[in-house]
């Protein structure tokens, strides 16, 4: 058992995947000598060489476009997009090529590409460094989208994503990179496309992923002191959604709050709300509520703590659900 950070968890997972399969390669801006701006790829180029850990030119479409060709040649590229707000130049390659080639070729072309994106706010960064673009990708058929919330999941989920023959957008909660947890490699991981009950409760279900899992768990701990029992589910997989544990919890508590940093309109909360109302209509005691970013561009960082959902806003929604 060793205590590792979330960033180290991804790093160790990448290393394990590269040791297991020589076709796994890493590509991105500053991922080589520097080890990435968050040091997530630290030491990998030194140990696996410049052919497998590629410092690319500064062009995100180029990273994804060449990854498509490498995948067609049998490689398993793990592409790092340096920050969430820099993924848009690659959006066309991701949506029009990476996501569709398997379908267009009737399965003859495989796209085992992982797109790592540090996402979310809370680190006091300048604009374009704090966004939550996951809904764009979850909306795109042909992609799978996952988000890790803790070091142990980071370690396993990155390996499982690299193992997948489908393209996966892998969101890493950048403000949690330095969170620590004990990793016991002898404990078998959950499947990649499963959600997980992080804390059991009876009164209200809180659904979260990525950076908001910790916030939600803190909210649940605070609520417990006030006598409210919150069940927290970490979605882990955003596309496809693992809905059965969510439906089971919604039926149990009758009250659901969805939490994410991304703007509220057409975010994951919208889909979850719709699906829960379709499947659990007669079990609900209150409408599904959403705690999310506002429908504004991400604000200047001096006010990001006000913008971002926090413990109090989660509990405010929990109270409104209970009072409904």
């Amino acid at each position: 058992m060793t205590a590792i950070t979330l960033g180290k968890g991804v790093n160790m997972g990448l290393r394990a995947a590269m040791e297991k399969d020589p076709k796994v390669i890493i590509m991105g801006e500053d991922v080589g000598k520097l080890g990435g701006v968050f040091r997530v790829t630290d030491g990998l180029q030194k140990d696996f060489g410049e052919d497998r850990v590629i410092d690319t030119p500064l062009a995100e479409s180029g990273i994804l476009g060449t990854a498509v060709g490498l995948a067609m040649r049998g490689y398993r590229p793990v592409c790092e997009i340096q920050f969430d707000g820099f993924v848009y130049p690659a959006y066309d390659q991701i949506v029009s090529q990476v996501a569709k080639l398997h379908f267009r070729s009737r399965g003859r072309v495989k796209m085992p590409i992982v797109i790592r994106i540090p996402f979310g706010g809370g680190i006091g960064a300048v604009e374009h460094h704090s966004e939550s673009p996951e809904a764009y990708f979850a909306h795109t058929a042909g992609l799978k989208v996952v988000a890790c919330s803790n070091p142990v999941d980071a370690y396993w989920m990155i390996q499982q994503s690299i193992d997948s023959d489908d393209p996966i957008v892998f969101f890493e909660p950048k403000r949690r990179y330095w969170e620590k947890a004990e990793l016991d490699e002898s404990v078998a991981p959950d499947g990649l496309f499963t959600s997980r009950v992080m804390r059991e409760g009876d009164d209200v279900t809180v659904l979260a992923y990525g950076p908001m899992v910790k916030t939600s768990l803190e909210a649940a701990a605070a609520a417990a002191e006030e006598g409210t029992s919150i069940e927290v589910i970490d979605l882990r997989t955003l596309s496809p959604l693992d809905l059965h544990p969510i439906f089971a919890s919604a039926r149990k508590t009758g009250r659901v709050v969805v939490v994410h940093e991304a703007p509220v309109t057409l975010g994951l909360g919208s889909e979850l709300s719709a699906r829960i109302s379709e499947e659990c209509f007669y079990f609900l005691e209150a409408p599904v509520l959403r705690v999310a970013g506002f429908d504004t561009p991400y604000p200047p960082s001096r006010i990001e703590e006000e913008y971002l959902p926090d413990l109090d806003r989660v509990l405010d929604a929990v109270d409104r659900s209970l009072e409904y």
Binding site: A67, G69, Q93
Partner: peptide
């Protein structure tokens, strides 16, 4: 053109 270049890198 990018796919071709990536394939060539492979």
């Amino acid at each position: 053109a990018l796919h071709a270049t990536g394939y060539a890198m492979g």
